[in-house]
């Protein structure tokens, strides 16, 4: 029986756009515009989409690094206690900060250059009640060994490490309070391919050992294919397709996902893939197009797409739940 760890309901993050002398608000960037998503305990949920579609903002909104404008983020503990996170006071948030952590994209800015590794990792531990220095050193040392690094490295400065090593230190930081969910925000995108594989393997191994749940944010669908149990595809701040990962590749429902998948490079010269090239750019999230937000670029768009906003509907492919928001799907909707 799958149990949820996070339930997102209608999460919106709007950033005001200011202009003029008095910083009048002239509009909003709809970075995340109404996302419903359940994350189950122990799964790896991929969140894919091109740049600027709101993936990172959604990840940060979960941790309240960005305050959601609207909507609910519910955390469900192992004893089935539900807590709504967005309405909590700052200090009431602390016990949940321990459960939810994040690994960042850029290994070069994710570590404080003025502190040794131990120096920058010890404050969170101190805050969450590990008083003795020996104990803190032990925890960090053990975790460094868990990510295949040497214990002594904790007394070194970040500039002494390579990108892959820094990323692993970033993972140590996320792990140090024994979280349940880790948001991996493009955690391997800045690394080169061989190091990517190494870090991904490490992440999967840690997941097994520590019973973690990952929200894996990426723009690279070739990574998610091997990693994720389910994949959500985002476009312009909304989820357009959500399904088990094999179904996304084999029974794609949404034309946008189709285009994304066709863009994955295949290391096979004989294989002819039909490349769907999308015209133009992602429309401005300040005033998204009327109707389906994807219709100006969609190769299949019809008249209904220009007027009506499609909702996320439930279908079934291969006996799995498959959500998609498109007017042109001819599968029967499940209610």
């Amino acid at each position: 029986m799958k149990k949820e760890i996070l339930k997102l309901r209608g999460v919106k993050v709007h950033f005001p756009v200011q202009a003029g002398v008095f910083n009048r608000v002239v509009g909003h960037v709809l970075a995340v515009d109404g996302v419903d998503l359940d994350i189950f305990r122990g799964e790896v949920l991929g969140l894919a989409g091109e740049s600027g579609c709101g993936k990172t903002t959604l990840g940060k909104a979960i941790l309240r690094l960005v305050e959601p404008t609207d909507g609910e983020v519910k955390y469900i503990s192992q004893d089935d206690d539900e807590t709504e996170l967005t309405s909590l006071e700052k200090k009431d948030m602390d016990p949940f900060r321990k459960k939810l952590q994040i690994v960042f994209q850029d290994p070069h800015s994710s570590l404080n250059p003025s502190f040794t590794i131990f120096g920058s990792l010890q404050d969170p531990l101190k805050k969450f009640g590990i008083k003795s220095k020996e104990e803190r050193r032990k925890i960090i040392g053990d975790l460094l060994e868990a990510v295949n690094m040497r214990r002594e490295y904790m007394d070194r400065y970040p500039h002494e490490f390579s990108g892959g090593q820094r990323q692993r230190i970033g993972i140590v930081r996320a792990l140090c309070l024994e979280p349940e969910l880790i948001v991996c925000d493009e955690a391997v995108s800045a690394l080169d391919v061989s190091i990517q594989a190494q870090v991904l393997k490490l992440l999967m191994q840690l997941k097994k050992e520590k019973n973690l749940t990952y929200l894996f944010i990426t723009h690279d669908l070739s990574v998610t294919e091997y990693l994720c149990d389910r994949i959500a595809v985002m476009y312009l701040g909304r989820i357009v397709e959500l399904c088990v990962s094999e179904d996304l590749y084999n029974n794609t429902l949404h034309p946008y996902s189709e285009a994304l998948i066709s863009a994955i490079p295949v290391a096979d010269l004989d294989k002819q893939t039909k490349r769907i090239v999308l015209e133009g750019d992602v429309p401005s999230p300040v005033n998204p197009p009327k109707g389906c937000p994807f219709h100006p670029r969609c190769p299949k768009a019809t008249d209904i797409c220009k007027t009506e906003v499609p909702t996320l509907k439930k279908y079934s492919t291969n006996g799995n739940e498959h959500y998609a928001s498109c007017h042109l799907i001819d599968l029967p909707e499940i209610t």
Binding site: K60, L63, L65, K90, K91, M93, D94, R97, L100, Q101, I102, F104, S109, S110, L111, N112, S120, D123, P124, K127, F128, G170, R173, L177
Partner: peptide, 9 residues
């Protein structure tokens, strides 16, 4: 790294 510190509250 500042974001990370913030995520620890």
């Amino acid at each position: 790294y500042v974001q990370a510190l913030r995520s620890f509250g």
